[in-house]
């Protein structure tokens, strides 16, 4: 394997990691506030669909972005309503959202475009196109750094860079602001937060809003950046991989970047090489696809440091009377 193909794998790994990163950070905000979110998948799916549909109808990718993110926020709101206001089971609400999203996208897609749930292919103006960073061409002659800059760092769509920016931003919000402190506290011990006179409900809803926006960006990127149009079930389990990455990252933003990048890389390798020959032993492609989940189970079991979820995760908060 030569240097260039390694770079290309890393490059495609970065692209594949981006939707995971957005979704993983969405899950981070939601679970840190004590709301389990199995419905990440659903939010990615509705957002991907609406973004592509609106982009192809209006010809503007920005309107698509707004539509996609709004759809995801609406789903987030439903999840919040069910699990915060109605104090329902968060797990079941997430499962219901996933059913709802895969049904709704195909149904509306079929009624709207009549293509069996697909949207028409997006034209360049209706997509986020790769950005060429300055000096990429002129620096490409420089050994080692030149190709890295040109192949790996430059040439991604805007959302990839936004995703990378979201990591320090999330870290800052969670660990350096009052809001972040409260958000983390509400996931560990909501009663204490309530005693301090801060609204648990309001905090949890704002975490759902943030999760909705981030998940929306994941979906928008999927259908207008990575792909060119929406296809049935196009999220393909990314919400669950993001959930796995979140555990892998032990609910921390910087680790989330590492975990999603690792999983993106695995996907890139699985896409490029069907079966990998390791010294006469053939590793089937399905093993590569299953690897993120297997790694997550191993992490969860605590074989590599312990992953402890936020303590109040999954429990609705009932104010004592």
């Amino acid at each position: 394997m030569d240097f260039l193909s390694i770079l290309q794998i890393f490059d495609s790994g970065t692209r594949l990691a981006t939707p995971l990163l957005f979704a993983c950070l969405a899950g981070l905000f939601s679970e840190r506030a004590g709301i389990f979110d199995i419905g990440l998948e659903a939010k990615i799916l509705v957002s991907a669909f609406l973004a592509a549909a609106v982009a192809t109808q209006t010809g503007s990718v920005w309107l698509g972005l707004i539509a996609g993110v709004s759809a995801s926020v609406v789903f987030s709101g439903i999840h919040g309503l069910a699990s915060i206001t109605f104090r329902g089971n968060q797990l079941i609400s997430g499962v219901a959202l996933n059913f709802l999203a895969s049904g709704l996208t195909v149904l509306i897609g079929q009624a709207w475009f009549g293509l069996g749930g697909r949207t028409p292919g997006l034209k360049p103006a209706e997509r986020f196109l790769p950005l060429e960073l300055p000096f990429a061409e002129s620096l490409s002659g420089v050994p080692v750094f030149g190709p890295i800059y040109k192949e790996l760092i430059s040439g991604h769509t805007l959302l990839v860079y936004v995703g990378l920016l979201m990591v320090p931003l999330s870290w800052f919000i969670l660990y350096r602001t009052r809001f972040g402190l409260r958000l983390r506290a509400v996931g560990e011990n909501p009663a204490a937060v309530d005693t301090a006179g801060i609204s648990v409900v309001k905090l949890r809803y704002s975490s759902m809003l943030i999760a909705g926006i981030l998940c929306g960006l994941a979906g928008v990127y999927l259908s207008t950046g990575l792909g060119a149009g929406f296809g049935k079930e196009m999220s393909a389990g990314r919400g669950y991989i993001a959930l796995a990455a979140l555990i892998f990252a032990k609910w921390r933003p910087w680790y989330a970047l590492g975990a999603t990048f690792l999983f993106g890389l695995l996907e890139a390798i699985a896409n490029r090489y069907q079966n990998i020959d390791l010294g006469g032993f053939i590793v089937p492609v399905q093993f590569m696809q299953a690897l993120p989940y297997i790694l997550t189970v191993i992490i969860l079991a605590g074989f590599i440091g312990s992953a402890i979820p936020p303590r109040a995760g999954g429990q609705p908060y009932v104010k004592e009377r």
């Binding site: 709704l104 195909v106 149904l107």
Partner: peptide
């Protein structure tokens, strides 16, 4: 000529309504 996905939608809605209405039995 209804898409097959309509049923998933039905099932999802059913679960949701059930979840929301459960509040009546618990509260």
């Amino acid at each position: 000529g209804l898409p097959a996905a309509a049923i998933q939608l039905f099932q999802g809605m059913l679960l949701f309504f059930l979840l929301a209405m459960d509040i009546l039995s618990n509260y």
